[in-house]
Nucleic acid binder design. Structure first.
Lengths: 152, 152
DNA sequence: ACTTAGACTGAGACTGAGTCCCATTGCAAG
DNA sequence: CTTGCAATGGGACTCAGTCTCAGTCTAAGT
C-alpha cells in the first residue's frame, strides 16, 4: 500500500490484489478488477444493487461468485447493515481499522474512525471479557445506528 | 421493572409488556406471551429456528407477525449476527445496555457489558463524530466476532 | 346476554436476495 | 497445440421472510 509516485495508489492496490489472488491460485479477471475499482472509488461500502447498476454487464451470478472469492482471499469484507442487503468494502488490512454510521432510513453506510487511544481501550476490554467467556475474538465492529443528514 | 416480592420479576415484566402493548391498542395474547417467555428464559438472543423448535404449535407466520408487532412496540430488538438468520432479544429499556460476542462458526450470541466508564467514552466519541457528519445517532452496537469455547 | 369493531390467527401462496449447476470459454504451462 | 483448471454466464433453484384472506377471539357498549 505504500509506494512510489510513478503509478497511482490505485495501481498499487490492484497489484497487491493480484498477488494475493495468485497466492491462492486465482486470477485477477476483468470482472474482479471492475468490482475492486468500484468498491475503492465509491468510498463507502457498496451493495449488490450498486454493483448491478454501475456494472450492468456483469451478471449477478458472477458478481456474487467474485465477491465470495475476493472475500475468502481476505481482500473484501461483507458487512450487514440495518436493511436486508449485504454490502461490501475492502478488507481492513487494505485500508485501516474503522467503523460505520448506519442510516436506518435509507441504509447508507458512512465510514468513521475512532481516536487511537479509545480504540485501544475498547480492544483491551474486549480481550478481557472474551477470555472470561472462553471466547477467542478475531475482531470487532462498532456500528452506530441513526439517521443521516439527507434523511433527517 | 422494580417491584414487590409478591410475584416474581418475570410477572412484572409481563405486566410491563402488556401495558406497553395496550398503549398502542394491541393485546398480549398467548403467542406473544410465549415468545417473551422464551426470549427471557433463554438468556441469549433467540433465532426463529429456536422459536420454531421450542414453540412448535406457533405457526411461522404468527411468530414473525408477533415479533414485528413486539418490535414496533419497542419491546423486542432484532439483531443481525454473522449468519443469515435474524435473532431477537428484549429491547434495551427492558434490560440494560449491552453488547455481543458472535461466534462465526455456530452463530451463537453471548451478551456482554462494558465497564461504565469505557461505555461513556465510546458514547461521547460517537456523538462527536456523528455531529461532524451531520448524522443523528439513535444508539450503537458493538459486536465482537470470533469463535466460542464450544467451537474452538 | 347480544352485538359489533377491529385485533388476531393460521395456512398457504408469494417474493426476492442469494446460491447452485453445468455447458462453454479463456488462460497459462509443458 | 493441447491439456488442465480457473472462470464465466444465465437460468433454475432455495428458503428466510412477507403477504393475503377468510375465519376467530376479545373487549367494550347497550
Amino acid at each position: 500500500m505504500a509506494n512510489t509516485e510513478a503509478h497511482g495508489l490505485l495501481d498499487d492496490l490492484h497489484d497487491l490484489v493480484e498477488t494475493r489472488l495468485r497466492r491462492v491460485d486465482q486470477r485477477y479477471t476483468a470482472g474482479r478488477r471492475a468490482i475492486i475499482d468500484l468498491i475503492v472509488t465509491a468510498g463507502n461500502p457498496v451493495s449488490i444493487a450498486d454493483i448491478a447498476t454501475r456494472l450492468p454487464d456483469l451478471p449477478r451470478s458472477s458478481a456474487y461468485r467474485n465477491l465470495v472469492d475476493l472475500e475468502s482471499a481476505g481482500l473484501v469484507r461483507r458487512i450487514v447493515g440495518h436493511d436486508e442487503f449485504a454490502r461490501f468494502e475492502l478488507a481492513e488490512d487494505l485500508t485501516e481499522h474503522h467503523h460505520h454510521l448506519l442510516c436506518v432510513a435509507c441504509g447508507k453506510v458512512i465510514d468513521i474512525t475512532l481516536a487511537a487511544g479509545l480504540e485501544r481501550n475498547v480492544s483491551e476490554a474486549i480481550e478481557e471479557i472474551a477470555s472470561v467467556e472462553g471466547f477467542r475474538p478475531h475482531g470487532h465492529r462498532l456500528d452506530v445506528l441513526g439517521v443521516c443528514g439527507a434523511c433527517a
